[in-house]
Nucleic acid binder design. Structure first.
Lengths: 359, 359
DNA sequence: TGTGCGGATCGAATCGATTCGAGAGGCGAA
DNA sequence: TTCGCCTCTCGAATCGATTCGATCCGCACA
């Protein structure tokens, strides 16, 4: 623009038109030379590339290209909490990994968005240049978020989200999997079973599980897993943990176990392996041995190296879940209509369950 | 465009011009009404907003706005490996957390890019619509990456990167911190000290530490920490771990400890707390007690809940590091010239170090 | 030699907003 | 009453590429 310097340096970066001019072709031809979207003579293409090289032109401006094509090549991933918190959960990491991997194949990038952001929330969601959005186990604000995005024409995929009309949802069999574990415990002879649940709602703190909290719960995985457990043990009490961490599991475990022996459950079903590991540690803290004095089951199938024995759990294909979401996004962007999907879980007998001790 | 339907629905999404026309003002005025970048009469603004509401217009198209303003509102974060791998390291998570938090304040999003991608690597880096790029402890390809981005006019910040000219680098005192730990061990009376290092180069596998590997190392943190340790124990041997995980630490620990007693080191310096925890477990596996039979130190200051005692380590402000990088990015985008910075680490005496046992 | 055809290239419109200079009123001060 | 200034609004250029239809050229075939 401004001053036309002879060398391609200076402040004004070279544009495709500059390159075209230098190569003695029209901008349209130069564009084709770069994108390959059309026939170009080899010689012409070489000339354009040479001109680009001389001008230090590294390729079409992504912003301009996006405007014209209507695609940014970016997919948003909305996580429920801030990164430091959400990313402590290996299941989220694995899911994100599968998602990023699948999208990366097509050169699509992943933009991290957090549901938790205050003011900027609406702003960034509304103003983010994304071609699609994936909600990872998000709660409350999802309906609003989906509405806004829908109006902007940005398609949405949910992972373990609220199954709403017209939005493909990638799920795992939370209820069935938990039921499987509960049946395992019942078959071993357990009757006094307590739960340690994931957060049922955004902002949940460590607290006893109440029917009200269960009713009001908006976070699917936790709610569904409670139902799965109660399918077998209808009256099972529990503690709601705030995060899926060993520390939270340990704290919840203490609350359940640090009581007189007669009131102590013989088994604890934790809704994640991390929580379960915490419960095992809590038991050890109190001098209880697992599984002799207490059986513990988890959920997820995450290997916890530091545990003395493998957990009895169900494993879910977290990475595959993310990959499936990625493929769904690709299909969506290709004009397809991806279907919802529910992955099965696999029961894994570990060393943390046994028949209850004689009383 | 195409068909002009009376209702704002249908395929053709409303544009700012449509809104302006409906409100009876010019596009320029409508633009100002939305952005607030200029004086508008309250009444006019209300009329524009009402028209927008009627048309289902949710705000300016981010793509078009980006083209015009030259800003996408997105900053890229380049991580060394795929998400599932890089994100197992709590330090990276915390750093990213601080970064995202700081950027989020200004409504800037974080685009995840992985150095590891094969073909798409150059493509996505070159074609990503980012205003700046943050390199998180990346190795080999960094110089090339920086060159490409530089030509595109995208500024770069590195975290624990190669201090190259014109690029601000956010660092921690890796060498000094490790030296501190080494001196602590020396003061306790240790002489036979072995190291468990982080990967020194992209693609490192579990292997003994050699001078050649150290020379060739491109990943700053690992290399600098080896030097810090050797400042005090010049001949300390070691094992290079591939990732910063408990499992890798355990494996490396076994290699160092599963030998005849006389050849066994009395202390092991692991370059991360996760590795250190693994070493502690390895010692337990072999029936050695920590710190009586073996002292262990880590690096990072990450709390490892499942360890029976706190680690002796140095803690680094990982989140603060990310936040500093975020502020540097903001400053850069405001036309400033942020300076490199090196954070100090703090020695923390835990329960994993003691004088060596008598031989 | 005339016609048809296909590949290469070009022109011009377009994507949707932002921005700057200019114009139009309205109001207070001289 | 007139001049000047301030506030609000408008027009038009611009950001940098993509894309569609039209044109042009050479070559094969009748």
């Amino acid at each position: 623009m401004g001053r036309h310097s002879d060398n391609g340096e200076a402040d004004g970066r070279a544009t495709l038109s500059d390159v075209a001019a230098r190569a003695g072709v029209s901008p349209s031809t130069a564009s084709i030379a770069f994108s390959g979207q059309g026939p170009v003579a080899e010689a012409t293409k070489a000339r354009v590339l040479a001109a680009a090289e001389e001008l230090g032109y590294t390729g079409p401006d992504p912003l301009a290209r996006s405007l014209r094509t209507g695609r940014s090549g970016i997919v948003g991933a909305l996580i429920p909490q801030r990164i430091g918190t959400s990313f402590r959960d290996p299941v989220i990491i694995q899911t994100l990994d599968g998602l990023a991997e699948e999208l990366g194949q097509g050169g699509t990038g992943l933009l991290l968005l957090s549901e938790r952001t205050r003011e900027t929330d609406r702003v960034s969601l509304e103003a983010a240049p994304i071609d699609a959005l994936v909600l990872l186990g998000c709660g409350v604000s999802s309906p609003a978020a989906i509405a806004v995005l829908h109006r902007r024409g940005v398609p949405v995929i949910t992972i373990e989200g609220e199954p709403s009309a017209g939005v493909a949802n990638i799920d795992v069999d939370n209820r069935g999997g938990t039921r499987l574990l509960a049946e395992h415990l019942r078959d071993l002879g357990h009757r006094d079973v307590a739960l340690v649940t994931l957060a049922l709602d955004v902002g949940d703190e460590l607290a006893p599980l109440t029917d009200a909290a269960l009713e009001a719960g908006t976070l699917r995985p936790g709610v569904a897993r409670v139902h799965g457990a109660r399918d077998v043990f209808p009256a099972a009490p529990g503690i709601i943990a705030s995060g899926s961490t060993i520390a939270d599991g340990r704290a919840a475990g203490r609350m359940l176990l640090d009581v007189e022996a007669s009131a102590r459950p013989t088994a604890i079903m934790a809704q994640s392996d991390l929580l379960a590991a915490g419960v095992v540690f809590a038991a050890q803290d109190l001098g209880l041995s697992v599984p002799a004095d207490l059986s513990v089951v988890g959920f997820d199938g995450v290997r916890i190296d530091e545990l003395p024995m493998p957990l009895t759990t169900v494993s879910q294909p977290a990475q595959e879940k993310g990959a499936a979401a990625g493929r769904a996004v690709v299909e969506l962007l290709d004009g397809g209509q991806p279907e919802s999907r529910c992955f099965p879980v696999v029961f894994e007998r570990g060393g943390t369950t046994a028949p209850p001790a004689e009383r």
